[in-house]
Amino acid sequence: MASWGDLAAYIRATYDVISEQEDEIRILFNFEQFSEDDDRTQVIILVREVLDKLHEWVQIASPIGLAANVDLRALLEEVGHSTIACGAAIMGDHVVLRHSLPLVDLDIHEFTDPLALLAGTADQLEEQFFGGDNY
């Protein structure tokens, strides 16, 4: 990938885009592509970030539930023990998992693998800590 525009074109061609703004694309990640019996989905927000007004990055984030409705210590301990390609944050009212990648020399697998890992982890933590599949 060379730019946000290149990545955005790939995302549009590959994933189910549910909304799009200039520097943000929301997709519905469908786990059915990995298992025909899995009808769960996960909302993923892809945002163009610019570091030091020079370097384009993509932030991959997924909301998993309301921060007010969870034991944050237990959630963060689970994230610390079981995740590889994401960290947890509170954005607005929501707990999100997120991961960021520089775009300049990004190979497509350096995007798709963390995206799939983040989506799967978000789906699992959402079920474990919030009891459903709301995002």
Score class of each variant (00 low, 15 high):
residue 104 V to P: 06
residue 54 L to Q: 13
residue 59 Q to A: 08
residue 111 F to D: 00
residue 40 R to M: 02
residue 61 A to H: 05
residue 130 F to T: 02
residue 36 E to C: 03
residue 83 T to C: 10
residue 48 R to T: 04
residue 16 D to C: 05
residue 115 L to T: 13
residue 15 Y to F: 15
residue 95 V to P: 01
residue 53 K to D: 12
residue 66 L to W: 02
residue 107 D to F: 01
residue 26 R to F: 03
residue 4 W to E: 03
residue 56 E to H: 14
residue 50 V to L: 11
residue 36 E to D: 14
residue 71 D to F: 08
residue 76 L to V: 06
residue 34 F to S: 11
residue 133 D to K: 09
residue 94 H to V: 01
residue 83 T to R: 01
residue 25 I to F: 04
residue 107 D to I: 02
residue 63 P to D: 03
residue 134 N to E: 12
residue 20 E to G: 05
residue 43 V to T: 14
residue 103 L to G: 06
residue 36 E to S: 13
residue 33 Q to P: 00
residue 123 D to F: 00
residue 69 N to K: 11
residue 97 L to V: 02
residue 85 A to Y: 11
residue 131 G to H: 00
residue 81 H to D: 14
residue 128 Q to G: 01
residue 58 V to T: 14
residue 134 N to H: 14
residue 100 S to T: 12
residue 69 N to R: 09
residue 105 D to A: 09
residue 23 D to G: 06
residue 5 G to Q: 14
residue 51 L to W: 15
residue 114 P to C: 04
residue 119 A to R: 11
residue 43 V to P: 01
residue 116 A to V: 11
residue 42 Q to V: 11
residue 14 T to P: 02
residue 34 F to C: 05
residue 34 F to A: 12
residue 100 S to P: 08
residue 50 V to A: 07
residue 135 Y to K: 02
residue 126 E to C: 03
residue 66 L to M: 13
residue 33 Q to L: 04
residue 87 G to P: 04
residue 119 A to W: 05
residue 115 L to G: 07
residue 1 M to K: 08
residue 13 A to S: 09
residue 17 V to G: 03
residue 19 S to V: 01
residue 44 I to L: 13
residue 63 P to V: 04
residue 93 D to T: 04
residue 88 A to R: 00
residue 89 A to S: 08
residue 26 R to Y: 01
residue 104 V to A: 15
residue 82 S to N: 03
residue 125 L to I: 02
residue 79 V to S: 01
residue 79 V to T: 05
residue 119 A to K: 06
residue 122 A to G: 09
residue 29 F to E: 04
residue 7 L to S: 03
residue 99 H to L: 05
residue 117 L to N: 14
residue 98 R to H: 15
residue 24 E to Q: 14
residue 114 P to W: 05
residue 66 L to G: 10
residue 6 D to M: 06
residue 72 L to E: 06
residue 94 H to T: 05
residue 19 S to W: 07
residue 82 S to D: 09
residue 79 V to L: 02
residue 56 E to R: 14
residue 112 T to E: 13
residue 51 L to E: 12
residue 32 E to P: 04
residue 33 Q to N: 07
residue 77 E to I: 09
residue 60 I to M: 08
residue 91 M to D: 08
residue 97 L to H: 01
residue 130 F to K: 00
residue 125 L to Y: 00
residue 59 Q to M: 12
residue 59 Q to T: 10
residue 41 T to K: 11
residue 96 V to G: 01
residue 42 Q to H: 07
residue 103 L to F: 10
residue 49 E to C: 06
residue 109 H to L: 14
residue 125 L to W: 00
residue 57 W to E: 05
residue 5 G to T: 13
residue 30 N to D: 15
residue 75 L to F: 08
residue 31 F to T: 07
residue 27 I to C: 08
residue 97 L to S: 07
residue 24 E to N: 10
residue 129 F to R: 04
residue 69 N to S: 10
residue 59 Q to L: 13
residue 119 A to Q: 07
residue 86 C to P: 04
residue 109 H to V: 14
residue 130 F to Y: 08
residue 119 A to T: 14
residue 116 A to K: 10
residue 110 E to I: 03
residue 99 H to S: 15
residue 39 D to H: 15
residue 45 I to G: 06
residue 4 W to S: 06
residue 133 D to Q: 15
residue 40 R to G: 02
residue 111 F to C: 00
residue 103 L to A: 08
residue 56 E to D: 15
residue 92 G to W: 03
residue 111 F to E: 04
residue 59 Q to P: 01
residue 7 L to G: 08
residue 95 V to L: 07
residue 103 L to H: 13
